[in-house]
Simulated scan of single mutants.
Amino acid sequence: MDRVMLDGNGLGLTGLVRLADAVAGPVVPPGALHRVRRAHESAGRLAAQGQWYGRGTGVGAHRSVAVDPSDAAGHALRLLRSHAGGAGPVLPARQARALMAVRANQLLAAGSGIHPSFVTALTEALRLGVHPVINEYGGVGTGDLTALAQTGLTLIGERPWLTASPDAELPAPVALRPGDSLALLSSNALAVGRAALACHDLEEAASFAGQAAKQAERAAEAYRVVLACELVAAVRALRLGPVEPSAPAFRVAAAALPADMEDRALTGDVTTAMELLPQLADL
Rank of each mutant, 00 (worst) to 15 (best):
D7H: 05
G12C: 07
L16K: 01
V17M: 01
G25S: 12
P30A: 13
L33D: 04
H34P: 00
V36R: 03
R37G: 14
R38W: 09
E41T: 11
S42P: 01
R45M: 05
L46E: 12
G50Q: 10
W52I: 11
Y53W: 14
G58A: 06
G58D: 00
G58H: 04
G60I: 05
H62I: 00
H62C: 10
S64H: 14
A66N: 03
V67I: 15
D71T: 07
G74C: 08
H75V: 00
L77H: 06
H83N: 09
H83W: 08
G85T: 07
V90A: 11
V90H: 05
L91K: 06
A101L: 03
V102D: 00
A104Q: 03
A104L: 01
N105M: 03
F118Q: 05
F118S: 09
L122R: 09
L126Y: 05
R127P: 00
L128P: 02
G129F: 08
P132Q: 02
I134Y: 01
G138Q: 03
T142S: 15
G143V: 10
D144W: 02
D144E: 10
L145R: 12
A147L: 08
Q150C: 01
Q150I: 07
G152S: 02
G157P: 03
E158L: 11
R159A: 13
L162S: 13
L162Q: 15
P171T: 01
P173E: 04
V174W: 00
V174T: 07
A175C: 08
L176E: 02
G179K: 07
D180R: 01
L184S: 00
L185T: 02
S186F: 09
S187G: 00
S187F: 01
A191L: 12
A191P: 01
G193F: 04
A196G: 00
C199P: 00
E203D: 13
F208E: 15
A219S: 12
E221V: 09
A222S: 11
A222F: 05
Y223N: 13
Y223Q: 15
R224I: 00
V225E: 14
V225G: 08
L227R: 15
L227E: 15
C229S: 14
V235T: 07
L238T: 02
L238F: 13
V243F: 13
E244F: 09
S246V: 12
V252N: 04
A256Y: 05
L257S: 03
D260E: 08
R264P: 00
L276Q: 06
L280N: 03
L283F: 11
